[in-house]
């Protein structure tokens, strides 16, 4: 069982018999009062989104979903297609199921797919993924302040803030948990 202190973005819980994932999480405590754990949850079967606030003392059942090692193959009209690395069976995941994780998929990438029976209902990505910058403003000579930033777009179409020295063609590492720039990759 999980307690309130285990709640965080990405945690999967069983609620009313269905697996749910926490898509947004915040802790708050009005005044000198009681701790409130505010979650936005997505029902992983129906896709329904809703808010729920929990109070300390409540407990939660883990979703207990089976995870299968799979490889990302390609995107087609059925969605994003993955292949089970043991059975070679192929399954599609919808764009809606993947959410922003779709931006961090590279061909042949190995991921874990969460299964509900024979249906893929979620994905666990590696914590870091390397993607090439396809569009960014050039580095202005003389801009040496370490904290300056600018937007850049990577090969999957994802846009994020990067340090000013990152240019088109640079391979960068992105933290898939936060979607933020981590570092440049030496090639």
């Amino acid at each position: 069982m999980y307690s309130c202190s285990d709640l965080k973005k990405g945690l999967k819980l069983l609620i009313d018999g269905d697996p749910h994932v926490i898509v947004q999480y915040d802790f708050t405590k009005p005044g000198k009062g009681q701790a409130l754990y505010k979650c936005k949850l997505r029902n992983m079967i129906t896709g329904a989104l809703f808010d729920r606030t929990y109070r300390s003392g409540e407990s939660f059942e883990p979703a207990g979903l089976e995870e299968r090692d799979m490889q990302y193959l390609y995107q087609d009209e059925t969605g994003y297609v993955f292949m089970d690395m043991k059975s070679y069976e192929q399954i599609p995941l919808s764009e809606e199921t993947l959410g922003d994780d779709k931006y961090f998929l590279i061909d042949n990438m190995e991921v874990k797919i969460l299964m509900y029976g024979e249906r893929g209902i979620g994905i666990s990505l590696p914590n870091f993924v390397n993607l090439r910058v396809t569009q960014a403003d050039p580095w202005v000579k003389g801009d040496t302040a370490a904290g300056n930033n600018k937007p850049a777009t990577v090969e999957t179409g994802y846009t994020l803030q990067v340090p000013s020295f990152v240019e088109e063609g640079t391979l960068i590492q992105i933290d898939t948990r936060t979607g933020e720039y981590a570092t440049r990759v030496k090639e």
Partner: peptide, 12 residues
């Protein structure tokens, strides 16, 4: 390692 950019950009 490059400069800790997350920290550097907090300067303002």
């Amino acid at each position: 390692m490059e400069v800790n950019w997350r920290l550097a950009k907090k300067r303002p």
